[in-house]
């Protein structure tokens, strides 16, 4: 029996998790080095015992039960949600499409004429309800155009004018 063979048994022997098999026991009786090491391991283990963990708080169970209930409630709900999701997604999509088309219809019927009024006839037209929106849109558009015409060439400006005309010509 070599001393190194005992090394890996030392943690369990020192912790009292195992008792030495006969061969090892015999060796420990005749080898001072191994016996000494085992004793040091035992002392180290005893020292490590000083690190005690505090008692669990009395609220641990209460809090865990609350979280488990939440978790339990989530599972069947996710099942229902799973069942409902396709239908819900379809209805959401329908609502979205309806919203977009409604808005588009409103824009074609209402938005563009006011823009025409703002851009081509401008001041001659009386202020209509909802023109604040068209004003903002026109302002946005003008800012876009200004930002785009940073090259500051005549052709750019002509293009911009062309755009304005196109917009007013095709409501």
């Amino acid at each position: 029996m070599k001393c190194t063979e005992i090394n890996e048994l030392l943690p369990d022997l020192a912790a009292g998790l195992a008792s030495a098999p006969p061969g090892i026991s015999d060796h420990l009786h005749i080898c001072n080095e191994c016996a000494g090491k085992l004793e040091e391991f035992r002392k180290t283990m005893a020292l490590l015992d000083e690190w005690q963990a505090p008692e669990p708080s009395p609220y641990f169970d209460t809090r865990l039960h609350a979280r488990l209930r939440e978790e339990a409630a989530r599972q069947p709900r996710s099942f229902f949600a799973w069942m409902r999701r396709p239908a819900f997604a379809v209805s959401l999509a329908v609502a979205l499409v309806a919203g977009v088309s409604l808005f588009e219809v409103r824009k074609i019927g209402h938005g563009h004429p006011t823009q025409v009024a703002e851009t081509s006839q401008g001041t001659s037209q009386p202020v209509q309800p909802g023109t604040a929106v068209s004003d903002l849109q026109v302002l946005d558009k003008n800012q876009d155009l200004l930002a785009d015409s940073d090259s500051d060439t005549a052709s750019d400006l002509l293009d911009d004018l062309q755009v304005q005309q196109d917009v007013t010509a095709n409501p």
Binding site: L96, F103, E104, Q137, D140, D144
Partner: peptide, 20 residues
Amino acid sequence: KKRKPESSDVSASKEGTSAS
């Protein structure tokens, strides 16, 4: 550039609808 204002129009209307 002709496309540009149109596309900005579209995005403006999209914003409007998505918000609503």
